[in-house]
Simulated scan of single mutants.
Amino acid sequence: MKHAERWPTTVDAESVRSALDAAGVPVSLEQAEALAHHADLVLAANERMNLTAIKDVQEFVELHIVDSVAAVHEAVGGPEGPMVDIGTGGGYPGIPLAIVTGRPCVLLEATQKKAGFLEEVVETVGLPGVSVVNARAEEYADASLGLFSLAVVRGVGELATVVELAAPLLRVGGWLLAYKGRPTTDELDRGARAAKLCGMAIRSERRYELPSGHQRVAIVYEKIAEPTVRLPRRPGMAAKRPLG
């Protein structure tokens, strides 16, 4: 991460640092500045593209930055190697995790306009280990089978869908870290059925609260074998007709 020049800021780096301290994830001032710079760019770009419905700065810090980094313990506990953020949108959780952990990261985004914005973020903030790919997960998997040690997914779809999207991108032994609110028992069961077909198995499930009281779950699946079904399926099938 290169040292960025000062920029006109809405999100205060010290506020970011304090919020992460309160969540039990201390970061350096340089890391906090990079996280704040990214957030400022998202908020500014949100006026011309749909990146987030959250416009209040304090709420943004908690529900995007803190929420992304709150599962850093799961991210660093997995196998070493590159990470992919599937359906990253404005760069959450991939960019905060890359900033905090130093892990190489591919931001996978299907919308060309958002992918172009993310390329600007990577260059402007100075994130040499982060790259952007403009493609759907199923299309990218055709050329990237087993390339990643960690996949992260936040706000993309139900567990059965995200398990299927992640499985072909992961090497055997790789982890999927899925961020959820409070999934129902039915969603968890569907996710487990899809995981079995995709060569995945649930490894851990940690429930926690953000400082404001928002409920979250970090669910980790491990790829323990190759899928018993042919993956990837056609784009869109994982959401339209989930395996679970």
Rank of each mutant, 00 (worst) to 15 (best):
M200V: 04
G78M: 07
A218P: 03
R233L: 07
Q215I: 02
A137W: 10
P232S: 10
V172H: 02
A201I: 00
G87R: 13
V106Q: 00
A13W: 07
G81A: 10
N134G: 10
R6Y: 00
E14V: 14
Y92H: 08
A167Q: 11
G81H: 08
P227D: 07
G191W: 00
L29D: 14
D189E: 15
V66Q: 00
T124C: 09
N46L: 09
E80D: 15
A53H: 04
T228H: 09
G78W: 08
I95D: 02
Q58P: 04
E187T: 10
Y208K: 02
N50A: 08
R230S: 15
G89C: 00
L150K: 03
A22D: 14
R233P: 13
T185F: 10
L51V: 02
G199C: 08
G91M: 03
Y92C: 02
L150E: 03
P26W: 02
L159I: 15
G173S: 04
C198V: 01
A75L: 12
Y140C: 05
V163P: 13
V11N: 01
P168W: 06
A70T: 06
L97V: 01
L231G: 13
G126H: 13
T111F: 00
K196N: 06
A151K: 10
E33S: 12
E158R: 14
V57Q: 08
L150W: 03
E5S: 12
D12N: 15
Y140A: 00
R193Y: 04
V100E: 00
L177P: 05
G81Y: 08
V152G: 11
L108G: 12
E139F: 05
E62T: 01
L147Y: 11
G236H: 10
Q31Y: 11
A53V: 02
M237E: 12
V172T: 15
G77D: 09
V42N: 11
D186Q: 15
G213K: 01
